[in-house]
Amino acid sequence: MRVSRLVFLYTAVRLAVVAGCAGAAVAGVHLLGLEVSLTWTLLVGVLAGIAVSLVALHRLRTRINDEIRIIDNQRKYPPKRPRP
């Protein structure tokens, strides 16, 4: 249950960061009065947001990996049946 909450939190925050960077790119182009298509502006904003979120959310990704590692270590595999 804890892993699913962490993954949900990571996904939500990462989407927010990407959307914020894309919005900032669009606002920056508009404020500077540049003649750049909206498609290119959004593409640059999304790519920048992905890069920023990878760096900014490193600790949260590490926590998720640690939780997954704990679950894997606690998992018990069923014993193998002896062949007749």
Rank of each mutant, 00 (worst) to 15 (best):
L6M: 11
A51S: 14
L32G: 10
Y77G: 10
V7M: 03
I68P: 00
S4Q: 03
L54A: 15
L38Q: 03
V36A: 12
I68S: 00
R2L: 13
T39Y: 09
I50S: 10
C21W: 15
I64W: 00
L6W: 00
L31G: 03
Y77L: 15
A12W: 03
L34N: 02
P79Y: 10
M1L: 12
E35A: 10
V55L: 14
W40E: 07
Y10T: 03
I64R: 00
A19N: 06
I71R: 10
V52D: 02
V46R: 01
Y77F: 12
R59G: 06
L6N: 01
D72L: 05
T41H: 04
V3F: 00
R75E: 02
R83S: 13
K76T: 08
P79H: 10
N73V: 02
R61F: 06
L60N: 01
L57R: 02
T11E: 05
L47N: 12
L6E: 05
W40K: 06
V17C: 05
A16S: 13
V7Q: 05
G20F: 08
V3A: 02
S53P: 02
F8E: 08
H58W: 14
P78Y: 06
L31F: 10
L60T: 02
D66R: 13
V46P: 01
D66Y: 02
L54D: 15
A25F: 11
D66K: 08
L38F: 06
R14G: 11
V26H: 11
I68C: 04
A12E: 03
P84F: 09
C21V: 06
V13P: 02
D72C: 04
A19W: 14
L57F: 15
V7Y: 01
A27W: 13
D66E: 09
R69T: 01
V7T: 02
A25S: 15
W40A: 09
T41G: 11
P79Q: 09
P79N: 08
R14A: 14
L34I: 04
L47G: 12
R59Q: 11
S37K: 01
G45R: 01
W40P: 01
I50L: 15
A24E: 04
L47H: 08
D66W: 02
L54M: 14
N65M: 07
R2I: 11
V52W: 08
G33Y: 13
P84H: 09
R61H: 10
L15P: 03
I64Y: 00
S37D: 14
V26F: 12
P82T: 13
R61V: 03
P82F: 08
T62M: 09
Y77P: 06
R14M: 11
G33P: 10
R81A: 14
R5V: 05
V52A: 15
P78D: 06
E67S: 10
A48R: 13
R75D: 01
D72I: 01
L43D: 05
K80M: 11
Y77D: 15
V46T: 12
N65R: 07
L34S: 05
L9A: 12
D66P: 00
A16Q: 02
P82E: 14
L43H: 04
K80V: 11
G45W: 00
V18D: 04
E35L: 06
L6V: 03
I68T: 00
V17M: 13
P82N: 13
V29N: 09
F8H: 05
G49W: 10
L15C: 13
R75A: 06
R59Y: 04
V7L: 06
T62Q: 14
I71T: 04
Y10S: 12
A56G: 14
F8K: 08
N73Y: 04
A48T: 15
I68Y: 00
